[in-house]
Nucleic acid binder design. Structure first.
Lengths: 210, 210
DNA sequence: TTGTCAATTGTCAGTGGCTGTCATTAGCCT
DNA sequence: AGGCTAATGACAGCCACTGACAATTGACAA
């Protein structure tokens, strides 16, 4: 890697970390792009040459995670039923995610930023849209696994939508709770995914007092 | 109603219609608030006294619809299983929605704006966040119906998440397709909701060639 | 090593969404 | 009719973001 390339990488990482640190401590809306640029001592214009917008810094790490989930699903054995493949892909990609994230920013900082995303309306909106795009990708992979046409058969998109819904509920509760750790997330996720069947089944009132 | 009140209502409606018309023809991003204000011949500042932001005009009608869905779910007979109650609430509220919308803006204009929402990233993001908030409300109602505590039992949020996922997939396909009518939507929705069971069940490849 | 070329950066000016302030206007009520 | 209050317009300013141009800095060949 060139000196030039190395310099660029350093500047980008510095901007990223400065932005995330500011978001986590001061809040997203309370942080201006000028603040971020000033923290790294570059011009505002330079910031926008590295990131398409303020938002992009907040989602730089999540984007990495998404890539790894997609990859994990792609390498799932074809024998698994769709919902099973999704579940295992997500659960098993977290270790790789953690590792990849740590290379870029302290995992603790990422966790704090994650809470900011969930609690900042503008970021939550962006997060949900990104999730929708991810689900579209996953549906495509599921369809391929099953040898179906995504646009002809609704089932791939539906399972993924169901799955995505559960994941989002989980994420929200996890980020709002106290146990903001990897294991906490894993536990919550498995618990909630196990509830999908029961939740769809009939009378809850009958079940709940055995 | 006062002359003053009537005048305000007229101004608000004029701004709303002008905005939606511009969004539908020129596109959301291509429409400035100044354009909207100019179309009604008021100052930009006045626009912001009626709407919190440009976005709010686009979601004024959808907000109405959401209110009616919530209302419909509240009046569902307690005998219905959660997923059934949600399904019927949505399907049966559309007539009321259509009627209420027509009072405000031509239904055709609303449909065109809907497509703009689905195809404009910033609006889609906002739409998804609003949907998440709606789902939170619906989960609360479901929990109440079943005599559960939303924060203790995950099932209410999960069914609603599943349901919401299917609805969103349906909305997207509907707005992207040709049959952008009420009946088209109704049909798609029932079809897709009927796929929830099959989509969760095991091997699709075995099922698809009977 | 040096000179040339290309990439990176800073500066400046401008647009659009949005807000606070203050003077002006217009409807309301006695 | 005249005072009160609410609605409006005009103006200034903040912030995210973009285009254009000039200055700087690393890359690479002669």
């Amino acid at each position: 890697m060139n000196l030039r390339e190395r310099k660029k990488r350093r500047t980008r990482d510095a901007l990223l970390r400065a932005a995330l640190e500011l978001f986590a401590t001061r809040g997203y809306e309370e942080t201006t792009v000028d603040d971020i640029a000033a923290a790294v001592d570059v011009s505002q214009r330079t910031f926008f040459r590295y990131f398409a917008g303020k938002e992009e810094t907040a989602f730089f790490v999540p984007r990495l995670a998404e890539t790894l989930v997609v990859e994990a699903l792609r390498t799932r054995p074809p024998g698994e039923v769709p919902l099973e493949a999704l579940r295992r892909a997500v659960l098993e990609s977290w270790d790789a995610i953690n590792e990849a994230v740590e290379e870029l920013v302290p995992i603790d900082l990422h966790m704090r930023v994650y809470r900011v995303i969930e609690s900042t309306p503008a970021l939550l909106a962006a997060h949900l849209r990104r999730s929708a795009e991810l689900e579209e990708q996953l549906a495509g992979i599921i369809a391929e696994r099953e040898g179906l046409d995504v646009d002809a058969d609704p089932r791939p998109r539906i399972v993924v939508a169901l799955f995505g819904g559960v994941i989002r509920v989980t994420e929200r509760l996890w980020s709002a709770g106290d146990d903001v750790t990897l294991d906490g997330m894993r536990e919550l996720t498995t618990t909630y995914l196990d509830q999908v069947g029961p939740a769809l089944a009939g009378n809850w009132r009958a079940e709940q007092s055995p």
